[in-house]
Design a protein around this nucleic acid. Structure first.
Lengths: 178, 178
DNA sequence: GAAAATAGATATGATGTATAACTATTATTG
DNA sequence: CAATAATAGTTATACATCATATCTATTTTC
């Protein structure tokens, strides 16, 4: 048990603050090196977790030739037929110029259509095709499965707590003067 | 209060599954559009929270001419004098080729030095300069302040819960077949 | 009707991350 | 000990996500 505890905390070991900086210390790779200071930030933990989840997601989406942003956009369009690009940008917090290529990709793959809006010649109404709806569904299942596997150690209650915390963070006031 | 509750849930409104797909619906922008399906994934919540935290971080680091990866690398080098680049890559989960530019940047700013290793001519021992240690400390305070502001709605206990959950996610088994 | 605002698009740049391949050096193997 | 394999850092390239400025056409505002 004490060994186990020590082993588990290896990555979070204290910085070697007692280390002298002489050349003698450079003879072999720094022992017990770690990211302890960074682990003091909540954001760093979130970043590290996000990295692995993102890799999972990309792998899950690969068979559908979708990525994070294209899948997200597709799902929102499927759920909200007739959506305007500006709305999509707002919903997903994506800059409008960046949406062009995304919408092009989806349209090119036959998953969505840009339809003209008779009452507003500046805009398109984004519609999902039948194929688009199908792909959104299948990809969603794949992501679901990947997420379930990743979150296997978290109870339903813990997941709800995470979601709650993430929402508080998302909706909180910005840190660092803007 | 009921109005307030309705207002708050606008972004998470149900998908308009009852919507017909006729041209008539395209006349005005889709009302009550949202990302409800995506909100069903824990990962999406984490992604959205991560986005705002990352923006905070970039803003906080800007006065120091540092970014996420350069600050992270600097701190790890400060804490672990004599570190090898391969170690740094492992610790931060950064690909070794990507480290070259990062280390170049830090060295160019006078924050770290590459020192030769007499016993291994393939490697460098990365050392932080006095200036590097100073900048790491100051930038750390700035990030701390930004993070405190962002997390103001989370209790200490909730923060610990988040960290715990993120660690479980990070250390869990990968989702989606590799 | 003129000015301001908006929708989507073009162009460009920054940041973070991935892979293949290379030279020099060290470690391993027989 | 020599040949082979592995390693350290580097170069080159590509992909994904996200940001900003600017533009044309259209709609809204005053």
């Amino acid at each position: 048990m004490p060994w186990k505890g020590w082993r588990r905390s290896w990555r979070n070991a204290r910085p070697n603050s007692g280390y002298s900086m002489g050349q003698a210390q450079a003879k072999r790779p720094t022992p017990r090196a770690g990211d302890a200071t960074l682990r003091g930030f909540v954001g760093y933990h979130v970043k590290r977790a996000m990295s692995v989840m993102l890799a999972d997601l990309m792998r899950a989406l690969e068979p559908y030739e979708l990525r994070l942003v294209t899948y997200s956009a597709l799902v929102v369009i499927v759920d909200n037929p007739g959506l305007r690009q500006a709305q999509l940008a707002d919903i997903l917090d994506i800059e409008r110029p960046n949406l062009v290529q995304i919408v092009d990709d989806l349209e090119g793959k036959g998953l969505i259509r840009r339809e003209k809006v008779p009452t507003d010649r500046r805009a398109y109404a984004l519609m999902a095709t039948d194929r688009g709806q199908e792909v959104a569904g299948e990809a969603g299942y794949a992501i679901r499965a990947a997420e379930e596997q990743r979150l296997v150690a978290l109870s339903d209650e813990e997941r709800r707590e995470v979601i709650r915390a993430m929402n508080l963070i998302e909706r909180g006031q910005g840190g660092a003067k803007a």
